[in-house]
Design a binder for these strands. Structure first.
Length: 850
DNA sequence: ATAATAGTTCTTTTT
DNA sequence: GAACTATTAT
């Protein structure tokens, strides 16, 4: 499961006390920190920091000025540049670590940056803020929450939480009958918050004659009110409320404006308006009268002031690449980067185009694809490492066929010396993992899925977390509702409504209603159950501030009987659920080990804000599976980009959105540019989604790659967007090359053949396609589609030895060459008569001894 | 109040 | 094929 254990930076003091090194340091040396450095600043130790850099990179490290935009193409060494720039600022004593704020996209990127700065300058790297927008805002909000109606112990609603809340609200307002869905409402609210609009602002701009808009306003209002009551923020609030805080309370803003003298933002192309506004607020100069107030409040300001008595705005460095902007759907505004020079006058722009990651063939493909996006600044990646291997293309008959190709190629790569951890498989949608996982398990390829159905999204984990939230934040009724009847206590919907009514009538929280359950006149059994829960939560709450998180969780699990109930259940899955909760307990212990001072709130925050890429473990010897979105910022020796089909990549949903197709192209571009040495593009002719088999067409993006760059092991031939597929040709398997196939797609090959060389591993698929398409038209489901899906097969302890003959559902008959591994991990290497040599996990492979 | 069953709708990407 | 909803039987 989630192997990675969150690590938390030590809590930091924001107000500088005289004991703070920055305080003494700043007053103890001549020259104001942050003052522009002369040419001498990079003498001595500084030279080390620019070693091995190209001239543009060097300039990006050394430039000093108010604002700098680094346009960094994929693989152009921007992380090196950023870390050296930070190291340079500290090394040259232009800044103290505590004056630096670096924002990254994921916690993982933050950890990496911290590590690399540490490598460059050692201990002095401590005290910097290197974090995501969301984490940084949580730190600020925890300090300042009391300023505006929240408390320090606020909790964070993840998307599932806010959806659940919206669902309640929609139901209460009968908005579902008006055609409102939860995802619409949450999408709209998120969008508004990203534009820094709140319910009241929105109310002023709506057409009051439109009942839809009026109703939505009511939803928005209630949602906002419920969050406030629950002492909780949603993801978007974290940013938007911080901006609000800064704007409403200039003296609070001044604290941070004074503190952060150098702000650096990575992945700037994916910032939304709220994040942009936050950066604007943070880089604002502090007016003289606010400076006076700071000084009166005991803040050190003397050497920070300029001639007019104010504190000048922090310097800003942003790094980004508009070609890698893939989060517009989440409100990312590409204009933030395209209009940077306008927004921050006198800014410097540096272009990094030399790529240090990929071969020229891969870059040529990437450049050719992205050139189809008009309306972009011309930029072309180049390298000096040479052309490298051709891109390998493959078209499977089905998603499973495609997955088998990926597995086979991975096995070959691994045999050739490529470590599993240097291989990644990308896809557009999470649902594509299923086919890949099945084949990988069978083929005994170790893998891990990043993101997807995350550990923390499992129901039993959410239940356990809800217990923790209820202890940390008694004001949150959502968490309380979740656990009220988990494990079963006989508190059904009727009882819950009664409790809620009591709470409303007496104008108290739901938690208070639980405590006073005896006043409700319910049955003695239910009343006992309710007060029992209330007592448990109250008892544990008493220790919450100081006790280790694992102790708190253990007390809750034992007190509630959560795990006991699962263990006692007849449902075999419940045993696995119980184990997951034990796993969570292990996570809390690990957390405590890494953060001896970490509180329950720290733990909850950390868990809510971890991104998919965050639990990537570089040392693990496993292939990584992830969506293209998760892949951003990562790189691998070998990359498999799967499902390169129309309606999948570009995704069908993107067609109707303005800018959608262009964003999909950027996504494809991001995927391509992750590869260092080898790139595989694959697709399937039919894809089963949601039980149904559909005919899939090759993606238009494939036609944008020059044909000579791709070596098709099995080309899509004429199965192109004109809609024609040739089942006859599909079944024809020829050996040797075929010009038609080498020409690639859409190049006018007349024979409509499934050209190219048939793959070595034949022996299956023959005839399948006919049945599949025919069946797809008549029946929604076919036994063919489900043949390899369904529950994981279990061969028990099938004994196999070298020399045995076996039969495989896909590969036909073969002879066992060798058996390795132990117990459930026993692997048979089999030489198939027609399908070549494969490794199979004996326990689950669809095989029989014959 | 709950467990089991049958029917419905849906899937893009995520901090 | 999953996840949620509505309907039934206990």
């Amino acid at each position: 499961m989630s192997g990675a254990v969150p690590t938390l930076e030590p809590t930091m003091t924001i107000v500088l006390e005289p004991s703070d090194p920055a305080y003494n340091g700043a007053s103890g040396r001549s020259g104001a920190p942050g003052a522009s450095a002369g040419p001498g600043a990079f003498g001595g130790a500084g030279a080390r920091l620019t070693e091995g850099l190209n001239p543009q990179q060097k300039e990006a490290v050394e430039y000093r000025g108010q604002s700098l935009l680094i346009v960094a193409g994929a693989g152009s060494g921007k992380t090196s540049v950023l870390t050296r720039r930070i190291a340079g600022l500290i090394d040259s004593r232009e800044a103290w670590p505590s004056q630096i704020l670096a924002i990254t996209f994921t916690n993982k990127a933050a950890a990496e940056m911290r590590e690399r700065v540490h490598q460059l300058i050692g201990q002095s790297a401590d005290g910097m803020w290197i974090s995501t927008f969301h984490s940084a805002c949580v730190r600020i909000l925890r300090r300042e929450a009391e300023q505006f109606g929240f408390t320090k112990s606020f909790t964070i609603y993840d998307s599932a939480d806010s959806r659940a809340l919206l669902k309640r609200i929609l139901k209460e307002l009968d908005a579902d009958t008006m055609g409102f869905t939860v995802s619409q409402a949450s999408g709209k609210i998120s969008k508004l918050k990203n534009e820094l609009s709140d319910a009241e602002t929105y109310s002023r701009q709506i057409n009051t004659g439109d009942p839809q808009e009026v109703l939505f306003l009511e939803i928005f209002r209630q949602y906002t009110r419920e969050l406030q009551r629950a002492n909780a923020f949603d993801f978007d609030d974290l940013i938007a409320q911080t901006v609000y805080l800064f704007r409403a309370f200039p003296h609070v803003a001044a604290l941070y404006q004074r503190r952060f003298r150098h702000i650096l933002v990575d992945e700037y192309q994916d910032t939304n308006h709220a994040q942009y506004a936050l950066i604007r607020e943070l880089t604002r100069p502090v007016d003289p009268d606010e400076v006076e107030l700071l000084e009166q409040g005991g803040q050190y300001v003397a050497t920070l002031r300029d001639g007019s008595g104010r504190i000048p705005g922090a310097s800003l460095t942003v790094v980004g690449d508009s070609d890698q902007s893939i989060y517009a759907f989440r409100g990312a505004d590409i204009r933030n980067i395209t209009e940077f020079e306008h927004d921050f006058p006198n800014s410097k722009v540096i272009l990094l185009e030399q790529n240090y990651r990929s071969t020229q063939n891969i870059l040529d493909a990437a450049n050719a694809v992205i050139a189809n996006n008009f309306d972009r600044q011309a930029k072309s990646l180049f390298t000096t490492v040479g052309a490298g291997d051709k891109i390998i293309g493959f078209t499977g008959y089905t998603g499973h066929d495609e997955a088998q190709f990926v597995a086979d190629e991975i096995a070959t790569l691994h045999d050739g010396g490529t470590a599993y951890k240097d291989i990644a498989v990308f896809y557009r949608t999470n649902s594509q993992t299923r086919a890949l996982e099945e084949i990988f398990i069978r083929s005994a390829i170790p893998y891990r899925v990043l993101g997807g159905t995350k550990f923390y999204e499992r129901a039993e984990i959410k239940d356990a977390m809800a217990y923790l939230i209820s202890v940390a934040n008694p004001a949150d009724p959502m968490a309380l509702r979740r656990i009220m009847n988990v494990p079963k206590r006989g508190i059904g919907p009727a009882t819950e409504t009664a409790l809620q009514r009591y709470a409303d009538q007496h104008e108290v929280g739901l938690r208070d209603a639980l405590r006073n359950a005896s006043e409700l006149g319910l049955g003695p059994k239910v009343t006992g159950a309710i007060t029992g829960l209330a007592t448990l939560l109250d008892d544990v709450s008493k220790t919450a501030a100081t006790a280790p998180v694992s102790d708190i969780l253990l007390a809750l699990i034992q007190g509630s009987g959560l795990v006991d109930a699962l263990r006692a259940s007849r449902d075999p899955q419940d045993e696995a659920r119980a184990e997951n909760i034990d796993e969570l307990l292990a996570v809390t212990k690990e957390f405590q080990k890494n953060n001896p001072e970490g509180t329950l709130l720290d733990f909850l925050t950390e868990v809510t804000l971890v991104a998919a890429a965050d639990d990537l473990d570089d040392t693990s010897g496993t292939v990584s599976l992830m969506t293209l979105h998760t892949a951003k910022g990562l790189e691998y020796e070998a990359v498999f980009l799967t499902g390169v089909e129309e309606d999948l990549l570009p995704h069908r949903m993107s067609a109707s959105e303005p800018g959608g197709p262009a964003e999909e192209r950027r996504l494809f571009y991001v995927g391509i540019t992750r590869a260092r040495q080898k790139l595989f593009l694959s697709l399937a002719m039919t894809r089963a989604q949601f039980g149904e088999v559909n005919v899939a067409m090759p993606s238009r993006f494939l036609q944008e790659i020059p044909v000579e760059l791709i070596d098709w092991k099995q080309s899509p031939g004429m199965a192109n967007s004109r809609g024609g597929t040739q089942p006859r040709a599909l079944n024809a398997r020829r050996d040797g090359f075929d010009e038609g196939g080498r020409r690639g797609i859409g190049s006018g090959s007349g024979d409509g053949g499934f050209g190219g060389r048939a793959r070595a591993a034949g022996g299956y698929g023959s005839g399948s396609y006919d049945r599949a398409t025919a069946a797809a038209k008549t029946r929604p489901k076919t036994e063919w589609a489900n043949r390899v899906t369904g529950t994981v097969r279990d061969n028990g302890d099938l004994e196999l030895d070298a020399g045995d003959r076996i039969s495989h559902v896909d590969f036909g008959e073969g002879r066992v060459v060798a058996v390795t591994g132990l117990g459930a991990r026993r692997i048979a290497e089999v030489q198939f008569d027609t399908a070549g040599r494969k490794k199979l996990l004996i326990k689950v492979a669809p095989i029989e001894k014959i």
